[in-house]
């Protein structure tokens, strides 16, 4: 059973009606083709209406859709020769993060991403895509290796956040994330980060410092979940819809705030409607980014990375007389 989101119900219902009519005409003498055609025109219009003006909360729902493609889905479509490697060499292997090497259009690359599951069993294995310190340290190990062997790094961000657990704290969740931010700043290879689902706070940023940051059209990137913000602000998690709007967490919002580089368009209704088409759109953006970034000298690359982050934020300066 496919998950149907509240705001797209009218579309799904109309689509089902059309299917039903088509079935009826098949088994009977009645010709309904004119009606069906009319309804299909109406469907197109309805789809454009609903999907063409998605509210922030609608996008949150799409970003959390259970069928939304994950890091491993995109890896399969985008790369050849992908080999996954495990472990952080300190403590263990965190399945909420996948890392490995592959080729992108023949170019050797290092690929890292947060990995959630699509059902309960997978989600338990992947800890719902919420990494422990081991996940960040595994990611860093592979990034340093990419730096050593001069391979560009591509990261896929898809997490509600770093795991808020006892063991994670005991093993230094803060330090693991912080170290990644600092080390990523100094890597001498291009880093391209793509938010494919939910980008949850520091846990997302832990593999998210790069030269180009892109977001899928219906993905989100936020300092706090809409529910968390609503609980803090209005003492009511049910105000999440309102918080989603105030926090400015959608791809178009972040583009406007100057935080990300490209908004990658999604198929009508979301990435899960057509993974192959979505992967193609991501691929062409990676291609563009690689072309631009691989031309830069090491010094220019690091300087541009610094300049990019240096200017983020709004600051007013009162001039003293």
């Amino acid at each position: 059973m496919k998950q149907v989101l509240e705001f797209e119900k009218p579309v799904i219902e109309l689509r089902e009606k059309i299917e039903e009519l088509k079935r009826m005409t098949k088994d009977s003498e009645i010709d309904l083709s004119e009606e069906i055609e009319k309804m299909e025109t109406r469907l197109k219009k309805l789809e454009n209406n609903i999907y063409g003006q998605l509210k922030p909360w609608d996008r949150v729902q799409i970003a959390r859709h259970s069928d939304r493609p994950t890091t491993l889905d995109y890896i399969q479509h985008l790369f050849t020769n992908f080999i996954e490697f495990h472990g952080d060499r300190y403590y263990g292997d965190d399945e909420a993060v996948v890392a490995g090497i592959a080729r992108f259009n023949h170019i050797p690359v290092t690929v890292i991403g947060q990995q959630r599951g699509k059902n309960t069993k997978e989600n338990i294995e992947r800890n719902f895509g919420m990494p422990h310190p081991e996940g960040y340290r595994k990611a860093l190990r592979h990034m340093k290796q990419a730096d050593k062997f001069n391979r560009p790094i591509i990261t896929f961000i898809d997490t509600k956040g770093a795991y808020p657990g006892k063991a994670a704290e005991e093993r230094g969740q803060s330090e693991a994330i912080a170290r990644n931010l600092m080390e990523m700043a100094g890597l001498k290879v291009p880093i391209i980060c793509i938010v494919i689902g939910e980008g949850g706070s520091g846990g997302a940023l832990g593999i998210g410092v790069g030269d180009h940051i892109h977001m899928l059209e219906n993905s989100t990137y936020s300092v706090i979940s809409p529910e968390g913000a609503a609980a803090l602000l209005w003492k009511d998690a049910k105000q999440a819809e309102r918080a989603a709007k105030s926090l400015k967490i959608t791809a178009p919002d972040l583009k406007e705030l100057g935080v990300i580089d490209e908004v990658i368009p999604e198929p009508l209704g979301g990435a899960h409607r057509d993974i192959a088409e979505q992967a193609k759109a991501i691929g062409s953006v990676i291609e563009d980014s690689l072309e631009k970034l691989m031309k830069l000298t090491e010094d220019d690359l690091l300087e541009e990375r610094w300049e990019k982050y240096k200017k983020i934020g709004e600051v007013k300066e009162r001039i003293q007389v």
């Binding site: 520091g202 410092v209 936020s222 300092v223 706090i224 602000l233 935080v259 990375r305 982050y309 240096k310």
Partner: peptide, 16 residues
């Protein structure tokens, strides 16, 4: 929280 993603990005900025 009130500065949303811009606040999050200060983590990156200071770390760089």
């Amino acid at each position: 929280m009130q500065e949303g993603i811009l606040s999050l990005m200060q983590m990156a900025k200071t770390s760089i």
